[in-house]
Design a protein around this nucleic acid. Structure first.
Lengths: 245, 245
DNA sequence: GGGCTGCATCAATCTATCTTGAAGACGGCG
DNA sequence: CGCCGTCTTCAAGATAGATTGATGCAGCCC
């Protein structure tokens, strides 16, 4: 149980808004149960009857969809403190698969716990609403990348996005990240083949834009990369001005 | 004012759940004001300070983003009864542009009207939450199409999506739709060039998959097209089982 | 009627990315 | 230590889709 130290969820949300005791109590209820997953383990699959959302407690996960012929699209990488499943909430069945990118831990909670929040805490409701729609905006950014960017730009966007997300809970973070996804997975996230990911990353490294050290990746000129893809940080701030008090 | 006949918004939402008088009153408040737009007119632009959402009252609109070098990505086509702006709600500034695809009419309402709904109607809150996240799931479907489908599949997906949406308010609709977007816009929605859209549509027509008549488009073998892209209808049903009563 | 503009179409060329196959690098494990 | 699976890299050839520029058609305005 996660009572001794603050949970990642509370940490992440309190970055945006002050959480009172009642709100923290509601959030703690979302993390009552937990379950461990090992690298590449499936959490749930498209078409599964699904009445749960999940809070990521530890490790990286990702959501993805498959096409009948085996093509795969990774939709979103999920980090500790993220909530998994908002886009699925409108349906009885899961619309995508979720898998552990590395060993990790999730806290499942039923949709009906949101109902309690909706009835008892308008402020937390507004926050949940904002987080879900912020994630929506991030998927739109990915869509833009996939539709109109070439391979180098997509990779830059991908790395910038991840680093911006990790900074929410670790403001002091440098421009070096641990990268627990292989090139096949990165390709599936960006609509590229793993061979082309390999080639492009190598070229970016040769150009001095990034450097690697094992599973660790460092962005060389973050400003230059940001300009290249016209990057907007969707994580640094949230408009809470209209929230109920 | 839209008091004599039911508004598109109410019509669309009551497709999913019974709306009581209080809910209808809240929804009517979202459509108090209205403004007309002509074809290709900009509603708002990326970076604009934006405290409003909009209900589409009449006509097709679309949201899109531009890259500095002129590349453009259309994110989503919006029809009467749709709510524009959920993905922007978390930010003070608009994250995308919105434009009229043809002459039409919008009803702007401030974010703070959601706040009222959050405080007074948990049921309508859950519905808004579901609609916003349903739209999120639809953008994910588009992402899948852009990442892993070829041109013909993307076009099939695009047409199937539109027809499924229109069926929510018009169940009797055949497989013929009016298509008020030109091929350049369709290309921007699907990450293709307008010349390639033209070529591919022509080939699909020659193959008997679709047929055209002016600005009207008919899907030949809807089942075949659905199989080709593994299509899921996100509009026909919504899971309301967990809603507060 | 004549000219303009927007739109769809066609064709020739070009290129980014895919496909396939094979070879290193690396770590884990018997 | 040596084997084996996973991951990355390299190379050669194939192709889907981009690019550019020209043509035709329709509606619209003068």
């Amino acid at each position: 149980m996660s009572t001794q130290s603050k949970s990642c969820l509370v940490e992440k949300l309190s970055y945006y808004v002050d959480l009172d005791d009642i709100a923290e109590k509601h959030l703690a209820a979302l993390e009552e149960h937990e379950r461990n997953y090992y690298r590449h383990q499936e959490v749930y699959s498209e078409g599964d009857e699904l009445q749960y959302l999940h809070v990521v407690k530890e490790g990286w996960f990702y959501s993805y969809t498959d096409m009948p012929d085996g093509r795969r699209q990774i939709i979103r990488v999920l980090h500790p403190g993220d909530i998994i499943g908002f886009p699925d909430i409108s349906f009885e069945e899961a619309t995508c698969n979720v898998r552990a990118s590395e060993d990790g831990c999730l806290c499942p909670f039923p949709k009906s716990k949101l109902d309690v929040i909706f009835r008892e805490s308008p402020k937390l409701t507004a926050l949940m609403f904002s987080i879900a729609n912020r994630d929506h905006a991030c998927v739109i950014d990915t869509l833009r990348a996939m539709g109109r960017m070439d391979a180098r730009e997509r990779l830059s966007y991908f790395f910038l996005d991840i680093i911006a997300r990790l900074r929410v809970t670790n403001k002091a973070m440098s421009n070096t990240i641990r990268m627990p996804m292989n090139q096949h997975e990165i390709g599936d996230a960006l609509g590229l083949t793993h061979t082309y990911v390999s080639k492009t990353i190598r070229e970016m490294e040769d150009a001095g834009l990034i450097s690697r050290n094992g599973a660790t990746l460092t962005l060389g000129y973050e400003d230059k990369l940001r300009d290249m893809v016209d990057f907007s940080d969707r994580y640094a701030t949230l408009d809470t001005s209209w929230f109920p008090s």
